[in-house]
Amino acid sequence: MLNNQKIKKMHKLAVYESGEGKKHLAISNYYRSDYIGLALIKNFFLTTIAYGLLLMIYFGYRSEYFMENIHKMNLVFMAAEVIGLYIILLVAYSILTYVYCSVKYSKAQKGIQEYYRGLTQMKKAYDREERRNGRITGRRTKE
């Protein structure tokens, strides 16, 4: 006999597993520190690439000015300014990445805990049903 509550619970678990659960299960394979560390490493490389591209665009756009005034410029100050701006940008994006990944990881953990709680409830329901069917038909269940 079909039990509507079990069907609803199975449907809810299946929807979670095929949707958000896929991402959450992938995230939960990591320890928190490993997940955030990996995200910060990706952030470092992506920020460096993006900053390099922005510098190339800026210096390409301003190349005529730089060629005419290179002898008047303080190149050490300009290099320090470029490096300082890079460090500020890297720190800012690293902080944002850390906060974002921490929140994402905690949401994934909560979702996974709820998912496992639902699976445990389903298993208990099936065990109860199996015991009940074993008593009705007169069979003994393995314990």
Rank of each mutant, 00 (worst) to 15 (best):
L46W: 11
L54C: 03
K6D: 14
I136N: 04
L90P: 02
G21Q: 01
K110D: 15
Y51N: 00
K42F: 07
M56V: 12
A80L: 13
F77E: 13
L55A: 00
Q113K: 15
V103Q: 10
E20A: 13
E129D: 14
V15P: 01
R128W: 15
N43R: 04
K107N: 14
Y115C: 09
C101E: 13
I27C: 01
Y98F: 07
T120Y: 09
Y58A: 01
A39N: 02
E17D: 11
R131M: 15
G118P: 02
L85S: 09
E129H: 11
L85P: 02
Y58P: 01
R139G: 02
V82T: 07
E81R: 05
N3F: 01
R140K: 08
T48G: 11
T120C: 05
Q113P: 12
Y98V: 03
L119T: 07
H24N: 10
Y58N: 03
I95V: 12
A14M: 10
G84A: 01
A92C: 06
T141H: 13
Y126G: 06
L25V: 11
R135P: 05
G134L: 09
H11L: 06
I27D: 01
K123N: 06
N29M: 09
L85Q: 11
S28W: 13
V76M: 12
Y30P: 02
T120V: 11
I7W: 02
A26F: 05
Y93F: 12
A50I: 07
Y35E: 02
D34H: 01
F77R: 14
Y98S: 03
Y98T: 05
L40Y: 02
L13V: 03
Q109K: 15
V103C: 09
Y61L: 05
V91G: 04
S28I: 14
Y16G: 00
L2P: 15
K8L: 10
S106C: 12
K142V: 13
Y51T: 01
T47E: 02
S102Y: 15
L46C: 11
K23A: 13
M73E: 12
N29F: 03
E64N: 10
G118I: 00
V99T: 11
K107D: 14
G37Y: 01
T120M: 11
H11C: 06
R117W: 12
E114V: 12
S63M: 11
N74W: 04
E81Y: 14
I83D: 00
R117S: 15
V91E: 03
R32E: 04
Y65A: 11
F45W: 10
M10K: 07
Y105G: 04
C101A: 09
I7Y: 02
L96I: 13
Y30M: 04
N74G: 06
Y65F: 13
S33Y: 00
M67F: 14
M56Q: 09
H71P: 06
Y35F: 08
S28K: 08
L119H: 06
K6I: 12
G21R: 00
Q121N: 08
I36A: 01
R128D: 15
Y35P: 00
V103P: 07
V91L: 09
G60I: 04
L119I: 08
L46H: 11
M67D: 10
V82M: 07
T141E: 15
G60K: 01
E114M: 14
F45I: 05
A108H: 05
A108G: 08
E129P: 10
K72Q: 10
K110C: 10
L54T: 05
K110I: 10
R117I: 08
N4V: 03
K42N: 15
E64V: 08
R62I: 08
F77D: 15
